[in-house]
Every structure is written in C-alpha cells, then in structure tokens.
C-alpha cells in the first residue's frame, strides 16, 4: 500500500505540519509519497525529500497552485488518486478546505483530524470539542484523512527521496485568488511554538496585549488569544486557540484573563504545562492549570515580565 501526503507550504518553506503528517502517514503503513503543488516551490520539494520515511516526492509546479485554492488542488489530488490507498494532509486551514472535496469526488468519507492510527483502516479522532475520542473503522477502499498535527512528532530530516515532476490537472476555473492579509510577526508560529502566552477578554483591549508580547519576547513565545479577544477586535483571527481555531500543544501555555470555556480548552488542554492567571478563583481554567495564580493580570503580567529578567 502507498500513502500520498499533500504538503502544506508557502512555496518557500515546508513547515512542520507536513513533517508531522508524514509521521502519521508512516503509521498507516506502506510507502509514503509527498505531493508538493505550488509555484516555484523547488526548495519545498527538496525539504520534503529529506523527511525520514518519504520514498518519493511529486512536484506539480504551476501558476494555478501558487495559492492553495480548493478546486484546483482537489482536481490534482483526484487525478493522482489511482496510485494511492490513502490521501493524507495536515488539518490546517488549507487541508480542511480542499480535502473534503477530494473525498466527495472519490465518493468516500473523510476522516477528519485524526489523533491516532490503530491500523491501516482504524483511526482515533476527537469529537465534541475533544471531550470524547471516537475510534472509527473505514470501509472505503481509499482513505481520505486529515491529521491533527499536535498528536504526532515531526519526521526527522535524514531522508533522501527521489523528486519527480508531475503535470498539473485541468483547472476547474471556479475561483480566483484576489489578495491576502497575513499577520506579520517575528515570533514563532502558534502551532509550532514551545511556549505560548494567550490573552482573553480580561485583557480589555488590543493595546494591553503589548504586556503579553513583552513576556513572549523574553520566553521566545508565540501570542495567542481566546475567541472573545478576537471577536472584540483586540487581535487578528489567526490568534484564536480553540475548538474552532488553532489546536496547540506547547511545553508551556500561559492563559491570561481567559475563563476556560470548553471551546478554548479544546485547543490547548494537551499542553504539557498550563499556567492560568485570572482574578476569579472560580474560573474553570484553574481546573486544568498545573499552576494557577489568582491575581489581577494588570499587576501580575508586568511582574512576570520583570521576574523573567
């Protein structure tokens, strides 16, 4: 059996979501191939070829893949699908967007967000905001799967796979990229950061997030947020951690002025160490925190920054 991993990248760098997905794909068994669809993406293909456990890298270099649009990407995956028993992609916003389209075109189910591989046809996935784990067995002859990357370690980079060009598929011509507004930051990316400090409604406004950024700079941390902080416009949407935002599992997660709603916990409760700073000692966040500090954040956060030297 052979599995095709569809890489998530920005044409310049591969990013570790794909390396983690390769680990999950290897657990399914058989050979692992990686598809890099992009424009001018040779560096990405080279990086993919170095991943441990990858036997072959396919590169589709074409203008229609410069931005990962669902319709052309799905058409390409379906064109290549004949040679594969499973098609796998990280559950990033790119994977979540085009993969169900692939599944429907192949007339199979998609198994979303797997966190465990029991065998080539049996997988574990969270449901109800991670409050239950479902073990499902697929009867489809081809599996279409997205991977929750926090559940798998990244594949190492000692590999040397062959790289092969493949032709683009016919573009369905249904959608067109117009523009992108990406959040710029020198800090690590949320989903790969070792330390995260997140703020909630308790931060009161966007300016106050500067306090968290100062701590983040000292810890080499990423900055995240609750939905309430995003909805209120304190920070951009891509800061949101939770059931319907980003799923993270850093070594250290510091929740500041966040109450700990089920939907927020769903995104961070697999962090190794959780710290909560909240003035309400009854806040549910304390039920999952390893270290809880009942305090006014406007006092505690500057103190923390100072204590970190």
């Amino acid at each position: 059996m052979t599995t095709l991993v569809i890489a998530d990248h920005n044409n310049a760098e591969l990013g570790d979501a794909t390396a983690k997905t390769v680990t999950a794909a290897a657990k399914i068994g058989g050979d692992v191939h990686v598809l890099v669809a992009g424009k001018g993406c040779d560096a990405v293909a080279e990086a993919a070829a170095k991943l441990d456990g990858v036997a072959k890298v396919l590169v589709a270099d074409d203008a229609q893949y410069e931005h990962p649009l669902a319709e052309p990407l799905a058409a390409l995956a379906v064109k290549l699908a004949d040679s594969y028993d499973a098609i796998v992609s990280p559950a990033t916003t790119v994977g979540k967007n085009f993969m169900p389209r692939v599944a429907a075109l192949l007339d199979v189910a998609q198994i979303s967000d797997i966190v465990g591989v029991e065998s080539a046809d049996t997988f574990e996935r969270p449901i109800y905001a991670g409050n239950a784990i479902q073990t499902v067995k697929s009867s489809d002859s081809k599996k279409v799967i997205t991977v929750r990357t926090t559940a798998f370690p990244a594949a190492g980079d000692g590999g040397s796979a062959s790289v092969e060009k493949v032709d683009a598929a016919e573009n369905p011509g249904l959608s067109e990229f117009v523009s992108e507004e990406l959040t710029k930051s020198d800090r690590p990316e949320l989903t790969s950061a070792k330390v995260i400090i997140s703020g909630g409604r308790g931060m009161q406004n966007g300016e106050n997030f500067a306090m968290l950024e100062k701590v983040a700079d000292k810890l080499g941390a990423a900055v995240g947020a609750s939905r309430a902080a995003v909805d209120a416009g304190f920070v951009p949407n891509d800061y949101q951690v939770g059931q319907t935002g980003k799923i993270v599992a850093p070594e250290l997660y510091i929740a500041v002025g966040i109450s700990g709603a089920i939907q927020h916990l769903a995104g961070m409760k697999d962090s190794k160490v959780i710290v909560a700073i909240n003035k309400d000692e009854e806040a549910p966040i304390f039920q999952v925190a390893d270290y809880g500090l009942v305090a006014d954040l406007f006092q505690a956060v500057p103190e923390l920054e100072e204590a970190l030297g």
């Binding site: 697929s138 999952v288 270290y291």
Partner: peptide, 29 residues
C-alpha cells in the same frame, strides 16, 4: 462508510496547585 468501534473519554487533566505570587510561579516553572 465509517463504523464507530468505540467512544472513550480523553485523558483527564488533574487540577494542579495555586501559587501565591509571581515569584513562586517563576520558580515552579
């Protein structure tokens, strides 16, 4: 297409401890 073999509870996290001050927090970390 999918048969649900079982539904289980995820590992539960135990509540940890309350620290009294930022200093104590930093030394615990």
């Amino acid at each position: 297409h999918l048969e649900v073999l079982k539904v289980t509870e995820p590992p539960q996290r135990e509540a940890g401890i309350k620290v009294e001050s930022v200093q104590e927090l930093v030394s615990k970390l």
